[in-house]
C-alpha cells in the first residue's frame, strides 16, 4: 500500500502497523464488512416478503394452504439456525440444479445420483463451470441470502401473523360495513394498520438477524468473523512478512465494537420509525387500549 512497506522488518512500530493494516488480506477483511451489510440489506426485505407470504398462507381459508403456512412457520422456527445452515444450502443448490437438469437435459440417460455423487448435465450446473469466479461468488451470496430469508421469514411470518390478528376487530368490521370485500379489507385496512403491532417483534428479529451473521461462513460466504479469525491467529514468519502472536482478542474486540455500534444505530433508527408509524394512526389510542387487555 504505502511505498515504505517493501521491507516490514526494518520499520518502526507506527509504520509497521500502517503497512500491516493495509495488506491485501486486511483489504479482504474490510470488504467483508461491506458484504455483511449488503447481505443484511437484501435479506431483511426478502425475509419480510417470505414472512408476509407465510403469514398470509397461514391465515388462508383454504386448509391445505393454511396448513402449509403453519407447517413452514412451526418447522423452521423449531430448528436451530446452525443446524439448518449446515445441510440446507447444499440441498437448496442441488434442488436448483435438479430442476434445471429436468428442463435443460431431457435426453440425459444417466442417473443423477451416482453413489455419493450428485451429477447433473453440464448445462444444468449452477453457475456453469465455465463461468468466471465472480459469478460463482455472486451465486453463493445469493444462496446465502435465500437461506437466511427462509429461516428469518419463518420468524417474521410468526410476528406478522400475530400482528394481523392484533389489529382491532372493530376496524375490520367497520370496513366490511362500508361494503369492502375481504380482499379490500385486507389490503386497505389490515395491512396498513398491522405494522405498528408488528414493529417491536420485527425490530427484535432484525437484532437477532444481525447477530446471526457470524454463521455466514457455514454458507460459504467469507464474513467478518472468518477474516478476524484468519488474521488474528498466530502469524508465523515463514508465511507472512508481518509475524505476530495470538491477536484474536484484538480482532474480536474490533468485531464487538462493530456489532455494538451497529446495534445502537439500529435501535435509534427503529425507535424513530416506531414513533413515525404510531404518529397519525388511529392506533395510538388503540395501542393503549390494546395494552389494557382485550381490544
Amino acid at each position: 500500500m504505502f511505498e515504505f512497506c517493501t521491507d516490514p522488518e526494518t520499520l518502526d512500530s507506527a509504520r509497521w502497523l500502517a503497512c500491516y493494516l493495509t495488506t491485501g488480506k486486511h483489504a479482504n477483511f474490510y470488504i467483508s464488512f461491506g458484504t455483511v451489510l449488503l447481505l443484511l440489506a437484501i435479506t431483511a426485505p426478502t425475509a419480510l416478503a417470505f414472512g408476509f407470504g407465510g403469514a398470509m398462507a397461514a391465515r388462508s381459508r383454504v386448509w391445505p394452504v393454511s396448513w402449509l403456512g403453519k407447517a413452514y412457520i412451526a418447522l423452521v422456527r423449531g430448528v436451530p439456525d446452525i443446524a439448518f445452515f449446515l445441510f440446507f444450502v447444499i440441498a437448496l443448490d442441488q434442488a436448483f440444479e435438479w430442476v434445471r437438469h429436468q428442463v435443460l437435459c431431457p435426453d440425459w440417460d444417466q442417473p443423477i445420483r451416482q453413489g455419493n455423487d450428485f451429477v447433473v448435465c453440464a448445462a444444468a450446473k449452477l453457475p456453469l463451470s465455465s463461468a468466471p469466479q465472480w459469478v460463482h461468488e455472486v451465486y453463493g451470496f445469493f444462496v446465502a441470502v435465500l437461506t437466511f430469508a427462509i429461516v428469518f421469514g419463518a420468524f417474521s411470518a410468526n410476528v406478522l401473523f400475530g400482528a394481523m390478528r392484533a389489529v382491532p376487530r372493530a376496524q375490520l368490521e367497520t370496513a366490511e360495513a362500508y361494503g369492502m370485500s375481504r380482499r379490500q379489507t385486507f389490503w386497505r385496512i389490515l395491512v396498513p394498520q398491522m405494522w405498528v403491532y408488528a414493529l417491536p417483534g420485527l425490530s427484535n428479529l432484525w437484532m437477532v438477524l444481525i447477530k446471526a451473521t457470524p454463521l455466514l461462513f457455514l454458507l460459504g460466504v467469507e464474513d467478518i468473523v472468518y477474516w478476524a479469525r484468519e488474521l488474528g491467529g498466530t502469524a508465523n514468519p515463514r508465511f507472512t512478512a508481518y509475524p505476530h502472536g495470538d491477536w484474536r482478542t484484538w480482532y474480536f474486540l474490533a468485531l464487538l465494537v462493530f456489532y455494538l455500534l451497529f446495534t445502537r444505530v439500529s435501535e435509534i433508527f427503529l425507535e424513530r420509525l416506531m414513533r413515525k408509524l404510531t404518529h397519525g394512526q388511529a392506533t395510538t389510542g388503540g395501542m393503549a387500549q390494546a395494552k389494557r387487555g382485550g381490544a
Binding site: T23, H26, E230, R238, F239, T240, Y242
Partner: peptide, 16 residues
C-alpha cells in the same frame, strides 16, 4: 486456506 504450509492465505489475500 487455513493450513500452512500446505495452503494458507498470504498477506496479499491470495491462496498460497
Amino acid at each position: 486456506g487455513a493450513y500452512p504450509p500446505w495452503n494458507f492465505i498470504n498477506d496479499a489475500g491470495e491462496i498460497d
